[in-house]
Design a protein around this nucleic acid. Structure first.
Lengths: 248, 248
DNA sequence: CGCAGAATTGATACATCTCAAGCTGGGTGG
DNA sequence: CCACCCAGCTTGAGATGTATCAATTCTGCG
């Protein structure tokens, strides 16, 4: 509803929480300085739309804190989430005028935005940004292809288990813990958002979550807080190989 | 069964059919010369496996002629195709040791391979290869996300129509014709391969192809040769917006 | 307290899968 | 040159997983 806050606070890149993982990860001091000049922060409240598919987009950005989603919508309203954006993930495509997907904040969100024109110039002049962006894009492509397997071939139960495993693992990673044995985390998505991500209806999501709970694979505390008593047990439910395709 | 032919013929890059679209598209004369030194050709027969997921892979490559597929297989045999590789498409990931997917030749195939080590060195030294690869990877990511919508939300009939539309459009593109009005092309995939790509069974593919034929959307001449009397009619069946998300 | 959004649960419908039986066309060997 | 063979494909009947439609029931919050 309201315009997003625009924070022009001169946040120091050196102290940035995503400094070592974002598109700027490889930058040298001088490159960071250039970035500092073209960057600005925006923040959005949970539920706000960051940008609509088809809209003109004259910035690219990194997620600093919070979670955003990328979704595609068909004319008749069917929706498919095609990306989940976490801190350090990149939004937008250099060389493209308009947004290809709806971007929505699912939690409160802070993004570090770069004006597109100067960002593109920087990419063509210094290699480090483009190098890192290539690496990140290749990772996203792998993730998209893993999701294609899930969407095309997994059962509803396997889909839910896979999503929970991914969130648990990522959460553990952020907390620098190992996703092993007993794990605890909060779901950042509603049942409907989970459904949009998994290519299911929200009723089926709800039923399968209940089934995993009934079978002791997970324990629910409230709707969103999830306890996984045995991570290996959860992994067995995903349908993936035991080593979980852990490419490094 | 037999080892692929390895053609060490000194093919001239200047005369290469994919020169302007492949990963080398942006290279200057001197860069091409470097590439010439590390490249070699391999050819495979239709049906041959190029590489198995998990295998060590010490080259990257461009498809020169023919079609290859990227597939993922679950332990119990469920398969999902995650990419269709056409002439100029890139195979392999710089910085990765092992293949992440099975790569299979669906037609006779010729690939232009680069030894990985020198290719990576070249990427870090000169910008043009990396720039082009980033562009291509971003395109593939978009394609993967479009496919996620198809896999997650489209009906079997829409899936078939979408696949046919994509093949028709690409085929027209190769022949420098416009995919408009009446269109004719050959299916490069078996029903089973189509099923693997679309997240369906081969029986469902067969039934829906028959249904589209019965409804006059397509005309079959043999199993593989397809006539589309009215391309707009086919597009209506895909479920996409009328303008077909034609990002340029 | 009571409301509204989120989630659960139930009953039924339906699309796709599964299992099974033929068909078809191009190649091969007698 | 014909009969056979076989992979690829089609078609049918029935099973099944998920969607759809419709009530409730939670849960947090003003």
């Amino acid at each position: 509803m309201t315009a997003p806050d625009i924070l022009n606070v001169g946040h120091d890149c050196g102290a940035c929480p995503i400094r070592h993982r974002a598109v700027c990860a490889r930058c040298e001091a001088d490159e960071l300085q250039t970035l500092e000049q073209i960057k600005y922060y925006r923040s959005y409240q949970a539920g706000q739309t960051v940008i609509w598919s088809g809209d003109r987009m004259d910035f690219v950005a990194s997620v600093v804190t919070g979670i955003a989603t990328l979704t595609q919508t068909m004319e008749d309203g069917r929706r498919q989430m095609v990306g989940l954006l976490l801190p350090s993930d990149f939004v937008g495509r250099p060389g493209r005028q308009t947004a290809a997907y709806d971007v929505t904040a699912t939690t409160d969100l802070v993004m570090c935005c770069f004006r597109k024109k100067p960002f593109e110039e920087m990419m063509s002049k210094t290699p480090h940004v483009a190098q890192r962006l290539l690496e990140m894009t290749l990772d996203e492509l792998d993730a998209a292809r893993e999701w294609m397997l899930l969407l095309g071939r997994k059962t509803a139960r396997e889909k839910i288990a896979s999503l929970l495993a991914i969130i648990a693992r990522r959460d553990a990673h952020l907390k620098l813990k190992n996703a092993k044995g007993s794990t605890v985390f909060d779901l950042p998505l509603t049942r409907e958002e989970m459904a949009d991500y998994l290519g299911l209806t929200l009723e089926t999501v709800s039923r399968q979550v209940s089934a995993l709970k009934r079978d002791g694979v997970i324990v629910l505390e409230g709707k969103r807080h999830i306890v996984v008593p045995n991570f290996d047990r959860l992994m067995e439910e995903t349908g993936d190989d035991s080593d979980g395709g852990m490419l490094v």
